[in-house]
Amino acid sequence: MSVKHALLALLCEGPRYGYELKAAFEARTGDAWPLNVGQVYTTLARLERDGHVERDSEDVDGHVHYRLTDAGRRETRAWWDSEVTREAPPRDELAIKLALALTVPGVDVRDVLQRQRTATVRALQTHTRRRARLTSAQRDGTAPAGAGTTAAVLVLESLIFAAEAEVRWLDHCEARLLRTADPNGARP
């Protein structure tokens, strides 16, 4: 996804400069997708070109703040009012890889499956630990006030559910492969 709409949404709260936008984006999305500050400024330049943002004041440190224009506000509204499309999903490298591993000779599909399972479980461990840090900070009262921490927890849980679904799919692939290999359906 482009970060364009995320930046527009953050600017609805008031003018910000590039680094502030990067920090706000990462805090609310659980540091799941770190942003390159250069990417933020490139996006701001495009948004400015398209008339969605304009330069606001410069602070004492020389940071250029950007603020939303009316067109930018309408663009953001349109984003909230539309759904994220799931009909034409982006190419899934893993699904493609498994399809090819199954059909191209000389590949041990169970090894491919296990390597991926390990990697996905490792990612799941990482998401689970990040979430545990956030929820324990919430419990101890050391998390920043506001809904930002809850937002970050929900984003991490989205990654947790997606990784879990992937492991289940890998398990399903393996079970189906074993069943296909043995027409009687017996377990090895």
């Binding site: 169970r110 296990q114 390597r115 399972r117 390990t118 990697a119 996905t120 479980v121 490792r122 990612a123 799941l124 461990q125 990482t126 998401h127 689970t128 630990r129 990040r130 545990a132 840090r133 947790i160 559910f161 990784a163 879990e164 492991v167 289940r168 398990d171 090895p188």
Partner: peptide, 30 residues
């Protein structure tokens, strides 16, 4: 068999046909 629960572990080991075949361990701490 729930990966989401296994993710609470320091290490996740995988068994296949009675053998340990792999292990997952995140570099990120608790």
């Amino acid at each position: 068999h729930e990966a989401r629960h296994a993710a609470w572990a320091d290490r996740v080991v995988f068994l296949r046909d009675g053998r340990l075949v792999d292990e997952a361990r995140s570099a990120v701490g608790w």
